[in-house]
Design a protein around this nucleic acid. Structure first.
Length: 471
RNA sequence: GCUCCCAUCGUCUAGCGGUCUAGGACGUGGCCCUCUCAAGGCCAAGACACGGGUUCGAGUCCCGUUGGGAGCGCCA
């Protein structure tokens, strides 16, 4: 059996699209599973949109997601000669012909046909006109036998196909001499010896045309697998306007690549009841036969859960590294990781769905006392006049403490509470929490103070005391 | 409009004629834990779109309706 060869063929749009990322992931997983090869091909025949930066963005997305390819990137923009040769060959064999119908004429005839309630296919006006090379501006059309059955057994959708008459003679080369996507794609797939074309279901109805192309090129078609589209939360096609569609967006929001990859692989595919898939498991278990046929909504609920799962599992050094840019954004500059930060990050794992959220919760530690931002609602609720004596007592007791650890801090809090008519711990802990973190949410109060250290704790509690007294 | 495709809890899905009073996960609600928020534990609510067939028997097969998606470009 020949080596499995798959390909991912994005057009460089300036970002890696969610749907594209999943298609790439499936191609990668299928190739790995079958000890095959993944080829990356950049479909940049559309000159306007295709820039080196746009290509770079797509590649960065793939790298970040952990989807490596084995060959390429191959750029279609550098292969124009091959497409022209292929078209010339088709022309020579009479399998394609020159068409001099203009856009306007075509548009007019198409509109009329649709108005009559019929499906438009090229009416074949130039089919037997025998236009030569000197016929003036012209496109080239593939001659499709109306009676051929263009059928295949889709690895996801099962038996599929249409008759040649349903697709008509489609254009394969523009009047400016450039190939159309379909021609370029098939020529490349043939030359790259692609064995399995795994792509979005939006190409399902283009496949008969591609089959006709393989025939005309005397090439054996590959196996096709069309994966259902990812739709927005409104059930409609993902829209750049309404939905976050780029992989980069999720990265910037603080999602881990593992989480996004795991989320994507489970959209439209499943393996029993398993929810968590490592990269290795994906490569080992992915199976096209288990891919669904219906479009799926991209709801981020499970992504958040997955992200927290992976945040909890990530070893501290790696997590600190991932967190770095988010921390820098909170602190307004680079943050030197130290023991206290490492300890805090461990405490924050269980309360952070994203790295962004984690950085926000860690802000109190990486920012100077005067840069603390106070949640006014929490201040009003917890910094009441009545707490002054107990808080002052705590401040003095903490000041007198010579060892600064969670156990002694706990003892100190308990003693202070006992001295003030059995004050509930929460009544003392909350004002302190607000004083040292600025808000009402943080890890346990002893852990928090232990991490902050004695001088900064005393300073912050002292400031709180001042403010309570002037209020 | 025409062609093709799809249809199980809010969402992702398991189910490949009887084992389904339909399973799991996320989310939601409740309880426990508790110095806040989480995390964790326990419990609960929640779906076979509808209508016809086929069959001893249908979530599972067929047809139709409805709903959704894709394609119908000298875009990719």
């Amino acid at each position: 059996m020949a080596t499995v060869r798959t390909r991912f063929a994005p057009s460089p749009t300036g970002f890696l699209h969610l749907g594209g990322a999943r298609t790439a992931l499936f191609n990668w997983a299928f190739a790995r599973r079958h000890a095959g090869v993944l080829v990356l091909r950049i479909e940049d025949t559309d000159r306007e949109r295709s820039t080196p930066e746009a290509e770079r963005a797509v590649i960065e997305g793939l790298e970040w997601l952990g989807i490596p390819w084995d060959e390429g990137p191959v750029r279609q923009s550098e292969r124009g000669e091959r497409y022209r040769t292929a078209v010339a060959e088709l022309l020579r064999k009479g399998r394609a012909y020159r068409c001099t119908c203009t856009r306007d004429e075509l548009e007019e005839r198409r509109a009329r046909t649709i108005a009559e309630g019929r499906k438009w296919t090229y009416d074949g006006r130039c089919r037997d006109a025998g236009h030569g090379p000197d016929c003036g501006p012209h496109t080239v059309r593939l001659r499709v036998d109306p009676d051929v059955r263009l059928v295949w057994d889709d690895l996801v959708f099962g038996p599929s196909g249409q008759a040649g008459s349903e697709i008509g003679d489609l254009i394969i080369q523009r009047s400016d001499g450039h190939p159309l996507y379909h021609l370029a794609g098939v020529v490349d797939d043939v030359e790259m010896r692609i064995t399995h074309v795994i792509r979005g279901a939006d190409h399902h109805s283009n496949t008969p045309f591609h089959l006709a192309l393989y025939r005309a090129l005397d090439a054996e078609p590959p196996a096709f697998a069309h994966v259902p589209l990812i739709v927005g939360s409104d059930g409609k096609k993902l829209s750049k306007r309404r939905d976050p569609v780029s992989v980069q967006h999720y990265r910037d929001e603080g999602y881990l690549a593992e989480a996004l990859r795991n989320w994507l692989v489970r959209i439209g595919w499943s393996h029993g009841d398993q929810e968590i898939f490592s990269r290795e498991e994906i490569a080992q278990l992915f199976d096209l036969a288990a891919v669904n046929r219906s479009p799926a909504r991209a709801e981020t609920g499970k992504l958040e859960w997955l992200n927290q799962h992976y945040i909890k599992e990530l070893p501290a050094p790696a997590l600190l590294a991932e967190l770095q840019p988010f921390l820098a954004a909170e602190a307004g500059g680079p943050v030197e990781p130290d023991e206290a930060l490492a300890r805090l990050v461990d405490l924050l794992r269980e309360r952070s769905k994203t790295l962004r959220e984690m950085a926000r919760l860690a802000r109190f530690l990486v920012v100077p006392d005067e840069a603390l931002v106070f949640d006014e609602k929490a201040v009003r609720k917890h910094w009441k006049r009545e707490i002054d004596p107990a808080l002052a007592d705590l401040h003095a007791s903490l000041d007198a403490l010579e060892s600064w650890n969670e156990g002694d801090l706990e003892k100190t809090f308990e003693q202070v509470c006992a001295r003030h008519q059995g004050l509930a711990l929460g009544r003392l802990a909350q004002p302190v929490r607000v004083a040292v973190t600025g808000g009402a949410v943080s890890p346990g109060i002893y852990e928090t103070l232990a991490v902050l250290g004695k001088p900064r704790t005393l300073a912050r509690v002292g400031r709180a005391l001042e403010r309570i007294r002037v209020a």
